[in-house]
Design a protein around this nucleic acid. Structure first.
Length: 706
DNA sequence: GCAAGGTC
């Protein structure tokens, strides 16, 4: 009997592998302090299934010093770099201890570049065994059949070209990211003494460039006027909107003559066409589907949706959320889930209705080797869910219900009219059968547009006709969701990293607000990189890296060749950068200064009217408050107090009680107030209640001072 | 103090 260690990438996979391979289908799980491993028996061998938690090791510079260039790095346990990664420390210690009595090592991480690298590094550094002696399980789904065959027909060696490609990906990203970030950061520090991290990288760079270029397009945009013809028609005592054949008329005189041609005339119905549109139910949620829908309905960022879903998963309310699948496999006990849901008051009705029929959920296209689509488990919440958790849970349940619905049916009607040589039309939409929309309520949307019953050759009176002047609008700025889609299209980053990389643009201060308006700092960073390191702003860097990785996997190029070339190219950039540090530093500092200034602006001063309210730090006490920009010239003494903790965001609205500027304070709790809260009658009442509560609970995170 | 990539 030999002892075999199987290394998987994550806990859920390890459990499935152990279940599939154990002859009895009941592996023994040994658990201690939230981490575990599995033991099973197969063909006379004893198997130990352990798991990593994604990457256990990461790159770290070999030399000392926070400067650049730094061209040499090594793999170190993640907890050495990130002190909070204590679970990773325990995992490495566990694998290390268990590997001492092992005769044969089998890597069973995800069969992709990162997975192969995770397996390799774990063997080399945690098991301290020779990766050349290890074997590889190859599988694309975690089904019992496939896992058994992957183990019984195990590949005799690791896929070294794949591992090499993975290493190169890490190394190149590290080299460019770390060195260029330090070059930018130190240009500011060496010129001004200020320390502000100014980061960039293979994905951050192009992301900034997308936002910057869109911003420049927006600023250069010249609005062009056009006219829209508004027509109200009347038929049988009903009034309704009629559309002109052309959406936009580009010339005022034409628009005016159309109006005079139509005003108070009668239009003749030329044709009435009706068609039936059937819409099948929506497909099951995978993670990105859930994220898109939660953004559409609740404006939750993808990272927030994932965090909430993760919690619901840990509470056993929903299935594993990090899935790509849009399929509900047959193995899932739909009846049990629906029965479980029917015990909850708000889901009782629909769940019972669905249970009365044959359970055939709609399936989507996309699949995932390890997990089904996101669905409720039918369990009841054992604690009180927060409002956001409730909303997401409800969305997941309702979408699950919708899968069992019938297609919806809508009647679309188009009526074409003619009047004085002009074509006009009206369109209506009527829901005939709600179908699945009944189950997905209130999340399904469909606007009904009711138009009167009109027969051909009928005449409609045009009782109101006017031409409205409008202007073409600039290209829309990115928001979180459109920028995410852009990165997806360009194949930049991965589904796990894109969202947080987008967030970093904001947290670094490159963009302002939810609509990714470029800050002066973002502009300065973009311009600097464009001049001195244009590679890192371009998607070509990723395209090039992809090609190099492919070449390594085909065996036509070596990791060393790729790496030395990258080092040589980078050295030239960094050399140039350093020689122009003063100039680069000066322009970044200029952008940073202006960014800080614009961040401090609250709004116009209500007292002197030509000053600006700013957030000011008292040099004596170090406390912050709002003051007028004319204070320095002793022209205005307007001040308002501020809480000392939390981020201050000026809002685009005025206090309904006193008319002062409203602000939002974002700390552990987000709340809104007007700057005049001490004197504002409406606000003062709210805040007294808040203050009492706070004192009672003994928390003092909202210290106020003037 | 920094990247991008896994995963909790």
């Amino acid at each position: 009997m030999s002892k075999v260690m199987i290394i998987s990438e994550k806990p859920t996979a390890a459990r499935k592998i152990a279940m599939a391979l154990d002859e009895q289908g009941s592996p023994k799980e040994t658990k201690k302090e939230k981490i575990s491993y599995f033991e099973c028996y197969r063909g006379g061998d004893s198997l130990v299934v352990v798991y990593a938690l994604g990457h256990l090791y990461e790159l770290k510079q070999t030399e000392k010093g926070w400067n650049y260039p730094k061209m040499d790095m090594e793999w170190v346990p993640k907890y050495e770099v990130d002190k909070k990664a204590t679970n990773i420390k325990r995992i490495i210690q566990l694998i290390s201890r268990l590997s001492k009595e092992i005769d044969r090592f089998v890597v069973a991480t995800d069969y992709d570049i990162e997975g192969s690298l995770i397996g390799y590094l774990t063997l080399k550094y945690a098991c301290k065994t020779d990766p050349n002696q290890a074997q590889r399980m190859l599988f694309s789904t975690l089904t019992k059949v496939e896992l058994e065959s992957a183990f019984d027909k195990v590949s005799p060696t690791l896929d070294f070209p794949m591992i090499e490609a993975g290493q190169v990906r890490h190394e190149i990203d590290w080299l460019y990211g770390i060195n260029l970030t330090r070059a930018l950061t130190l240009a500011i520090k060496n010129v001004s003494g200020w320390f502000k991290i100014v980061s960039t990288g293979r994905v951050q760079g192009p992301s900034l460039a997308f936002v910057a270029e869109r911003n420049i397009d927006t600023n250069l945009f010249v609005p062009i006027p056009f006219w829209i013809i508004n027509i109200i028609g009347s038929h049988d005592g009903h009034e309704f909107k009629i559309e002109y054949q052309k959406k936009r008329v580009i010339c005022k005189s034409t628009a005016d003559s159309i109006v005079s041609d139509l005003q108070d005339k009668y239009a003749t119905v030329k044709s009435v066409r009706e068609s039936i549109i059937t819409q099948p139910p929506p497909v099951p949620f995978n993670l990105s589907g859930l994220q898109t829908e939660a953004y559409r309905l609740f404006r939750y960022k993808p990272s927030k949706t994932l965090a909430i879903a993760q919690k619901l998963y840990l509470d056993a309310l929903i299935s594993y959320p990090r899935t790509n699948s849009q399929k509900i496999p047959k193995t899932i006990d739909l009846k049990a889930i629906l029965t479980g849901l029917s015990s909850m008051r708000s889901y009782k009705g629909i769940a019972r209705q669905i249970l009365r029929e044959e359970l055939k959920p709609v399936q989507g296209e996309r699949d995932d080797p390890a997990h089904p689509a996101i669905h409720p488990t039918g369990e009841r919440p054992t604690r009180r869910l927060t409002q956001t958790e409730r909303k997401l849970f409800d969305l997941i349940v309702k979408r699950f219900f919708a899968l069992f619905g019938k297609p919806s049916k809508k009647a679309s009607m188009r009526v074409d009219l003619e009047c004085g040589g002009h074509g006009l039309f009206l369109r209506g939409l009527r829901i005939i059968e709600r179908g699945w929309m009944e189950y997905y309520s209130p999340y399904a949307y469909s606007k009904e547009v009711i138009i009167p019953v009109i027969s051909e050759d009928a005449e409609l009176q045009l009782i109101h006709v006017s031409a409205d002047e409008q202007y073409t609008s600039p290209p829309a700025r990115y928001n979180h969701s459109s920028l995410l889609k852009k990165l997806e299209r360009e194949n930049l980053g991965t589904k796990a990293t894109r969202s947080s990389i987008i967030d970093s643009l904001k947290s670094r201060g490159y963009t302002i607000g939810d609509n990714f308006e470029l800050s002066t700092l973002g502009y300065a960073v973009y311009e600097t990189l464009k001049q001195y390191a244009p590679q890192v702003l371009s998607v070509d860097m990723t395209r090039h890296l992809e090609l190099e990785m492919e070449a390594i996997q085909k065996g036509v190029r070596t990791r060393n060749e790729v790496l030395s070339k990258a080092r040589r190219d980078l050295a030239i950039i960094l050399d140039d950068f350093k020689s122009k540090e003063e100039m680069i530093g000066a322009s970044l500092i200029n952008g940073l200064r202006r960014y800080w200034r614009e961040k401090e602006v609250i709004g116009p001063c209500p007292k002197c009217e030509d000053g600006t309210l700013m957030i000011i730090q008292s040099p004596k006490t170090g406390k912050r408050f709002i003051g007028c920009s004319n204070y320095r010239d002793k022209k205005c003494d307007q001040t308002f107090p501020l809480p000392q903790k939390g981020r201050i965001v000026p809002l685009q609205k005025e206090c309904p009680f006193c008319g002062h500027q409203m602000i939002k304070i974002v700390s552990r709790r987000t709340w809104e107030t007007c700057v005049n809260w001490t004197k504002c009658l409406g606000r003062a009442e709210d805040l007294k209640v808040l203050d009492k509560k706070r004192r009672r609970s003994g928390v003092n995170n909202g210290e106020w001072s003037v």
